[in-house]
Design a protein around this nucleic acid. Structure first.
Lengths: 203, 203, 203, 203
DNA sequence: AATGAATGAGGCTTCATTCAT
DNA sequence: GATGAATGAAGCCTCATTCAT
């Protein structure tokens, strides 16, 4: 029984080590030995917990996005106001990028690059970036729709607006990766939110 | 009296083949033989025109961004109106992403991923993404500043605003890569422009 | 708990395999796979013990000459008589050539050929044939000088004489490589010694 | 008709260029392009005059040794005295090594290294170092024999003595390669001759 | 006849994965 | 279960040779 916990914990440790290494050196340039060293285990141990490097990548990908999802959904439970919801979505997404000194922004960059060119149907079951974003868009679109219905947002094209919001968020993450000193997370998030809302808020 | 070839032209051919392959498979997964096949030459021929795979990458990087720059500057020559200038910058950047059925958007994704983690000082002379974006930001900031001086824009924080514009543009490029059908280039560019301007335009 | 091996021993095994291959096929014509096969290991294993082929070459070079040195110095400890010392030097040097059915004579031939044209300062730290021979000459010169002082040798030019002795030894090694049946080691060494001594012995 | 002379001359030019390059960089490290540049012709031109790099090597080998032979035999025609003959052989051999600032000594080093490991019967017809030296030994042995018959040399073992003479000559060449400043050619040749003769001259 | 552009075989080296301990 | 020693597939690059001009 205690063994089971051990295994899970170690698997998680290796996975996090891999994510850190991916963020630092890029997926392709991260060698098995790098992950092992980062995790503080032997090179062979990795293969006791993952079948291959690809499996680690997939696990990292899924962990990252399910975490993001989890955080957003958890926060959203606190309110019913579409304006607040949008604010939460924006803040949590930014949080996802900026936490850990931007390590995760570099990681998501890897996921983008790797995910974008994944066309192998076998892989698509595991890492379908297109679907992820599609769901994400839909999710935001629903919030906007709700806002329109409740009369707090103007009657914009919800899908395009949702797309623009995501675009802005990802774009800011990208900028942040290039230059950490560009803006302080809370400030910019606030500004961004105002700017975005400005475009759709009913006046 | 040996075979006569336009070496510049052939170098360009190989370079474009490499860019196509980079966009399709990713830089790291693109093998020398892939480039050769794409260019329709033998594996060894590549090395008659480039010293190494890295040199090809650098050349591609530079070609891509200098093209982008060239296009923007050429278009800007047509006007003095800051509003028009901003519009041109946005349109040309989008154009850079969307041309060739989005091939270049995938390419820039590669450059982001590769460029972001380039810290080797030797490389930084050749592919300094941070500096490129810094220059780009500054450039847009100047346009905004000009607009403020001329009284057409509100007195916003020019650097943050410039950053947001770039973020939006890159973010949209990113969205576009994930889903080609998301929006038609002219429509979205127009909408985006309006949205962005809305935030800074003097009312 | 992983496979237990004596890494030093294995490194030595690979090194000796390399030396055998060098002697048989020449350094440049010896491929990594040849060394691997000779050592009975996989191609990749070589690189667990040596950084590169060049490092193997350097290690072989140094091992060869330090062995030669060690043998000579060990034997010299047995006597104080300059005549005996010279005899020992000659015999040990010949021994170095002739042992292992002349394999080492072929190896030294390779070291000569490779070492002679080494001008790269980085390499010269590791394989400076000129210095090696210079030291060797000096060493023999001291013995002759001692002999002159003690009145057993004629007052010859010690450096030139030392050079001639080395020349004779190396030359004989060379002849031996060309034709194993030319002379039996002990016989020729004795004759050589007498001939050389004849020229400098005080009569 | 004049074309024939042209071709021979050009072939010779390429051959000499190859020899210079071989001496400077070693045979294996000499690339086709090196020879072409040294000869001042295009890379392809080499193959108009030689079937392969190996053929160049063989031609160089043969040219070198036939030249040596030719020089010795021509000089020997001047005398009937065995002592003089031996002197001529020694001087001409040294000359072979030392001419052109020792370039040929480095070349012969290459021939030794390359020739020693040639076991391929096809090659042995063209570059049989063993036979060359065997002939050379026999030739010197005859001179010594003649000297013994005429009563000017002691009754030594002619083959061993011949071997020692060659060994001394080659060994000195070797020393010379390592350190050009070791001895001045004429001086050393004279000394060597005296030393060698001392051992066999009838007293 | 002369050339250098083109090429692919081949060599060095890396590294994901296996496996003996 | 954990490990690192072992390995060979695979990738980059070189260069002898060919060949179109």
């Amino acid at each position: 029984m205690p063994r089971v916990v051990d295994r899970d914990e170690k698997r998680r440790r290796i996975l996090h080590a891999a994510m850190a290494a991916f963020a630092r050196k890029g997926i392709m340039k991260t060698k098995a030995i790098d992950i092992a060293q980062e995790a503080g285990v032997g090179k062979g141990t990795i293969y006791e917990y993952f079948r291959s490097k690809e499996e680690i990548f997939v696990a990292a990908f899924q962990l990252f996005f399910s975490n993001l999802n989890y955080n957003i959904e958890r926060s959203l439970a606190r309110t019913d106001d579409p304006v607040q919801k949008l604010k939460i979505i924006i803040e949590e997404t930014m949080q996802g990028f900026l936490q850990d000194d931007g390590k995760f922004a570099e990681l998501i960059m890897e996921f983008w690059a790797e995910g974008v060119r994944t066309k192998d149907p076998n892989m698509l079951g595991a890492i379908d970036l297109k679907k992820l974003y599609s769901d994400y868009r839909l999710f935001i679109a629903h919030v906007i729709e709700e806002g329109i219905r409740k009369g707090v947002f103007m009657s914009v094209d919800v899908m395009v607006t949702a797309s623009l919001i995501i675009a802005a968020l990802d774009g800011i993450g990208l900028q942040w990766i290039m230059d950490r000193n560009l803006f302080k997370s809370p400030v910019i998030a606030g500004q961004l939110f105002e700017t975005l809302l400005e475009g759709i808020r009913k006046k």
